[in-house]
Amino acid sequence: MNIFNQAGKYFALMAKVFSRPERHSLYVRQTFNEIENLGIKSVGIVAVISVFMGGIMTLQVAYNMINPLLPTTLIGLGNRDSLILEFSSTIMGLIMAGKIGSNITSEIGSMKVTQQIDSLEIMGVNSAGYLILPKIIAVVLIFPLLYILSVFFGIVGGLIVGPAVGAVSAADYLSGIQFGFNPYYVTFSLIKCVVFGFLIASIAAFFGYTVEGGAFDVGTASTRAVVNTSIMILVSDLILTQLLL
């Protein structure tokens, strides 16, 4: 399908999403539900992936430091900055596009094909606003928190794996992660997280909301949502890095 056509439909949908809610209290209640459903339930996978990636990156940095003159404190520093700058924001964004994104697309898509969305419209409810806005707010709020958790667990991963395989002592690792810390990196990544959160929720919702057909089409839409979100995350990562760093 024509990409400009799609983009036009996406922005039209967003205009509907951000129009005035009928009942604030219901939207607030939905937002808390979504924070639990999409956010709290992602903490586990974020922790597991981050511990592993932190451990793996620590080993990678250690094996690549063949020059014995380089201090091993650089290992902790390398892991920390990779986590803060790219892994916990961008790679986590791609993973969340798969987890949260496909969840959103399939939920909204099934509501579409079973006429639940038509039901909302007939009642006089702005279905796009009621279904999508709480999800966008929830993901935009929780993604920065998941980022901070991911950085923390990634550093813990390095702390477990580094000393365990004898690549770096715990003391050197810990002093490494405190060395030359640039707080702006964190600010920069938090900005990215807000953008990624918005992209993940809104693009996934768009593909769900525009499904036509049946269960099969909902599956196709989920896949397309994940692919498109991933591309948009990488494109915006490139742009933001160029603009802000």
Binding site: M111, T114, Q115, Q116, D118, E121, I122, M123, G124
Partner: peptide
């Protein structure tokens, strides 16, 4: 105006369309 009028409508869809 349509949204206002729709509050006077009720509809039963072919599959029921209950919120699951």
């Amino acid at each position: 105006l349509r949204k206002k009028l729709r509050q006077e409508m009720g509809m039963v869809f072919q599959g029921g369309a209950l919120f699951d």
